[in-house]
Amino acid sequence: MSFTNVENQVELIKEISGSDPYKCMKCGKCSASCPSYNEMDIKPHQFASYIIRGDVDELLSSKSAWKCLSCFACIERCPRDVQPGKLVDAARQLAERQRGGDHLQADEIPELLAEDLPQQLLVSAFRRYRR
């Protein structure tokens, strides 16, 4: 997967996540809170920079995107409302969309669970749309 238009890609991520990576002040409270920190090669406080630079491919090919537990600790504590967990979630969604998997049908989910559907997508989808 590759993106040609960096601006467009940042906009897409902003749109999906509802948060603005430019607000990040690199305080590191996300990295301090993250239970998967040691499993990640790109640390949560770096997510915003990767997205701003247009290195979403690198972010997605890293372990970090798929080691995020969607625990939302970083979202809860971020003082700048950047919410790195939402950013990486948006990046994952972008990747899924490019693979053509845009929508989930509720009754298909049990079947999908057996396959290699990333559990993070399910967890955050449920969290986000729990209403």
Binding site: C27, G28, K29, S31, A32, H45, A73, R77, P79
Partner: peptide, 10 residues
Amino acid sequence: VNYIKGQVGK
């Protein structure tokens, strides 16, 4: 005094 860059999480 030990100065560390990074806000405490918890």
